[in-house]
Amino acid sequence: MSSLPVAIAGVQVRIIDLFKGRASLGYVVLSATAIFLFDTWSPLHFAVAVLYSVVIVLATLWFKRLGTVRTAALCASLTCLSFVITHGSDLDGSALARTLISLAAIAITTKLAVLNIATRERLIALGKEKDNLARFFSPAIVEQIAKNDIAFSTTRYEPAAVLFVDMIGFTKFCSVLRPQDVIAMLRELLCMLSDSVFDHHGTVDKFTGDGLIAVFGTPVSSPLNATNAVRCALTMQERLQAWNETRAAMGQDAVAVAVGIHYGDVVLGDVGCESRLELTVLGDTVNVASRVENHCRAANASILITDAVVERMEREGSDRTVRRFTDRGLHTIRGHSDAIRLFAIPRDAEPAIP
């Protein structure tokens, strides 16, 4: 999706907004009437009615396709009426030719105007869609989606790393802070967390109130999906530490988050009803990542990852990042029958990114 056509469409919208609230229909009628009077009673003999094309072009600034077509019909009717008033049933060759030329000009201008309106509406819609995608995808992924026309509606299995991050002790903050302060804190926190996701080529699957779910590998895959997810988690903790230092200087309490990551196949598809569909990931990988994040409290860990993540990172050549984690052995995760080997960054460890 080129930014230039979207910018041109934006300029057209601003021009339209300039005339909003004014008697746009009056301008069209007044212009058409002036041309009609000049065409009918002027002694000059040339295709004055061609000037109706200007009226149609002006109509595109105020009206949509239907209004533009109606304006064109008005201009064509006035052209024919002018011919009848001036020449009656005397089909003079030159006069008839001028009238036909004017009608052809009106038809061509109308066709081009309707195409322009359709293009403008499509570009505006694409611009809005791009802005909406930017809420959940990194700029690089948005551009790739737009360039390659990646279909979201195709339900499929995809290997991906799923990251859950959640604020610890959110209820306590709600009990001591004013509602507006809680919302302000959450907005700042979620902005920081989502920026970390985008910086590591991930996708925000959804916001969960005091946290978020991120996916690395959909809808655009990368050879470093697991590595990107883990480095994203480390970045989150690093930025959180710096943010807490700022909060401490302002006399505010520190904020802590827990991060859990699992790697495996996920189901990617649209869920919901027809009036509100949501692209999301589902499956056992997502469930395990959620349980691993919940287990951070009991394990006194800021980040927990599974052995599937470690194995994938080793295949991706990220052994140095793997060595940052401590093997915590096998753990039974609620809702999962098999024990899972977990690797942790302790809560009091430095979250430096290797």
Rank of each mutant, 00 (worst) to 15 (best):
T33R: 11
W41F: 09
T33F: 15
R70S: 11
F83V: 01
V50T: 05
S77D: 01
K64S: 06
D90S: 12
L44F: 05
L51Y: 07
L74Q: 04
I35D: 03
L66T: 07
S77V: 04
V55G: 05
S77P: 07
L78Y: 05
K64W: 06
G67C: 05
A32L: 03
W41K: 10
T33E: 05
T79P: 05
A59Q: 08
T86V: 00
V55Y: 15
F46D: 08
I35E: 02
V69S: 02
A97H: 03
Y52S: 03
R98P: 00
L78E: 04
T79C: 02
V55D: 12
S89G: 13
A47W: 01
L58F: 15
L61T: 03
K64G: 05
R70H: 13
H45C: 08
T33S: 14
V50M: 10
H87R: 10
T71M: 12
L78T: 13
D39G: 12
L74I: 00
G88R: 08
V55A: 02
L66E: 13
T33I: 03
A97N: 07
A97D: 04
T60Y: 07
L78F: 13
W62G: 04
T40K: 08
S82G: 14
A72T: 00
P43M: 06
A59H: 15
G93Q: 13
T71K: 09
F83P: 01
S42N: 09
V57L: 12
L58Q: 05
S53T: 13
K64F: 06
S53M: 15
A73Y: 09
S89V: 10
F63G: 06
S89D: 04
L61C: 10
R98H: 10
T60N: 05
T40P: 08
S42F: 01
A59W: 05
V55R: 08
T79M: 14
T79R: 14
V50K: 04
S53L: 10
V57G: 11
H87K: 05
H87D: 02
A95W: 13
V50C: 12
T60G: 11
L66G: 04
V50W: 10
S42G: 15
H45K: 09
F38Y: 09
A32K: 09
D39T: 14
G93L: 13
S89L: 13
V48H: 14
A32N: 04
R70V: 03
A47D: 04
S31T: 05
V84S: 10
L61Q: 06
A34G: 13
C75P: 05
L81Y: 07
F36H: 01
L66Y: 15
L91G: 00
R65S: 09
V48L: 03
V48G: 04
S31F: 03
L58W: 01
T86Q: 10
V57E: 00
L96M: 14
I85L: 14
